[in-house]
Simulated assay, not measured.
Amino acid sequence: MNTQRLGTSEQDILFAGKLLSQGEVVAFPTETVYGLGAVATDEVAVRKVFTAKGRPSDNPLIVTVADKAMVQQFAVENDMSQKLMAAFWPGSLTIILPMRAQAFSMTVTGGLNTVAFRLPDNEVARAVIRAAKAPIVGPSANTSGKPSPTTAQHVWHDMAGKIAAIVDDGPTTVGVESTVIDVSGNVPTILRPGAITQEQLVAVLAQPVHDATTTESVASDVTPKAPGMKYRHYAPDKHVVMFDELDAVDLAQKLQDNDVVMAQDRILQAMAIKSQQAWSLGDSLESATEQLFSGLRFYDDQPKVGTIYVQKMIPVGLGKAYNNRLAKAAGNQEFSI
């Protein structure tokens, strides 16, 4: 298949929508990571997404919409979802709701009676969906299990020849996938951390919000309610190890010539390592989160790189999302003195 690279002109967006409406798969930008789009009500097209990604069939897909009205056609809303949509949409929050009878196929939901929705804070993404005239599935546009794509070039690396087109809107701004909250039951529950934090969700809902991301796992015979809960995710082929900033100087003494370090600028300066061994995560938690997947992807493509050491962040707010993705990439391996 000849994968076309599209821009963000009106003509390109309309063409991307046309391809989607014809049953093709098109990668599209969001503020979090690039997504892999197919019309959510087209069973054949959705299966193409699983094939392109190499994604397990029981891993449910997020449905991406252009406006709140699209959700009402397919799911049963409630007071909690309405409050969350009013506060955080468009934005990097995915909301799981009870699905209306046979609204989507089992391929989309993984056989569950719930479905996850997101309204992205990216006008190009919303324009593509409007051009397709239907909601689209939107898993990350990468080979399943690998670091998520934050640029169109990352998508090209994984998907060239597998999908019809890629809409290039430049680098994403958040850098990690959306927060996923399940409000299909009585207790709102975070299933994946992201830029929208537990504290923000509690403030809007005015009730406790359970965080299942640090205490619960999904058994091998159970379908996960959200992506990233059950299978290996975000991991390059290279060996990745997390480290605490308090151990940075000790780590610097033990680095091999082919090892590399991803850390904030002040940490890299304190470690005094060679510039060719360093990837800057900037000077803020936001910049670190934005750069995490890019750095992992870059070093994964360098044949001579040995181990990738990556700085952990304080596990508060966005730091929870950052550490969640890093821990999965590293298989929970940490540097110890």
Score class of each variant (00 low, 15 high):
residue 215 T to V: 09
residue 201 L to A: 02
residue 193 P to L: 05
residue 170 G to F: 08
residue 214 T to Q: 15
residue 170 G to D: 05
residue 187 V to A: 15
residue 198 Q to C: 13
residue 232 R to N: 03
residue 221 D to L: 15
residue 189 T to I: 04
residue 182 D to S: 05
residue 178 S to D: 04
residue 183 V to Y: 03
residue 218 V to H: 05
residue 166 I to H: 04
residue 172 T to L: 11
residue 228 G to Y: 05
residue 175 G to L: 02
residue 189 T to H: 06
residue 211 D to P: 04
residue 226 A to F: 03
residue 167 V to E: 07
residue 168 D to C: 14
residue 211 D to W: 05
residue 225 K to F: 10
residue 212 A to L: 12
residue 172 T to R: 06
residue 177 E to C: 05
residue 172 T to W: 04
residue 192 R to A: 14
residue 210 H to G: 00
residue 210 H to N: 02
residue 219 A to E: 07
residue 187 V to S: 14
residue 170 G to T: 08
residue 164 A to P: 01
residue 178 S to C: 05
residue 176 V to C: 04
residue 198 Q to Y: 04
residue 188 P to K: 08
residue 172 T to E: 05
residue 210 H to F: 02
residue 226 A to D: 02
residue 180 V to F: 11
residue 195 A to H: 11
residue 174 V to S: 12
residue 194 G to Q: 09
residue 164 A to L: 01
residue 217 S to A: 13
residue 195 A to I: 03
residue 177 E to M: 06
residue 203 A to F: 01
residue 174 V to P: 07
residue 181 I to P: 08
residue 221 D to W: 13
residue 212 A to W: 07
residue 195 A to L: 10
residue 184 S to L: 10
residue 177 E to G: 00
residue 174 V to E: 11
residue 205 L to H: 04
residue 210 H to R: 09
residue 190 I to K: 12
residue 205 L to W: 03
residue 210 H to E: 02
residue 208 P to S: 05
residue 207 Q to A: 08
residue 207 Q to G: 00
residue 225 K to G: 05
residue 220 S to Q: 13
residue 218 V to Y: 06
residue 214 T to E: 12
residue 191 L to I: 11
residue 227 P to L: 02
residue 221 D to P: 14
residue 206 A to I: 01
residue 223 T to S: 13
residue 205 L to Y: 04
residue 229 M to W: 01
residue 204 V to T: 11
residue 206 A to R: 12
residue 204 V to H: 04
residue 228 G to V: 07
residue 228 G to M: 07
residue 188 P to T: 02
residue 163 I to Y: 00
residue 208 P to R: 02
residue 216 E to R: 15
residue 190 I to G: 14
residue 194 G to T: 06
residue 208 P to W: 01
residue 207 Q to C: 14
residue 223 T to L: 08
residue 232 R to L: 08
residue 185 G to T: 09
residue 191 L to W: 09
residue 188 P to D: 00
residue 175 G to P: 07
residue 173 T to H: 09
residue 231 Y to I: 07
residue 183 V to K: 06
residue 165 A to L: 11
residue 219 A to W: 05
residue 202 V to I: 13
residue 228 G to R: 11
residue 230 K to G: 10
residue 184 S to D: 08
residue 167 V to D: 11
residue 171 P to A: 06
residue 206 A to F: 02
residue 168 D to N: 12
residue 206 A to K: 15
residue 176 V to M: 03
residue 224 P to M: 04
residue 190 I to S: 11
residue 163 I to E: 00
residue 229 M to H: 10
residue 217 S to E: 09
residue 226 A to N: 02
residue 205 L to N: 03
residue 169 D to M: 15
residue 213 T to L: 12
residue 217 S to M: 09
residue 215 T to L: 07
residue 198 Q to M: 14
residue 174 V to W: 10
residue 168 D to H: 10
residue 198 Q to V: 12
residue 172 T to G: 14
residue 196 I to R: 15
residue 164 A to R: 04
residue 183 V to T: 11
residue 168 D to Q: 08
residue 171 P to T: 02
residue 169 D to N: 15
residue 188 P to R: 07
residue 209 V to P: 07
residue 211 D to H: 08
residue 200 Q to D: 06
residue 188 P to H: 07
residue 210 H to K: 11
residue 216 E to T: 14
residue 168 D to A: 10
residue 170 G to M: 09
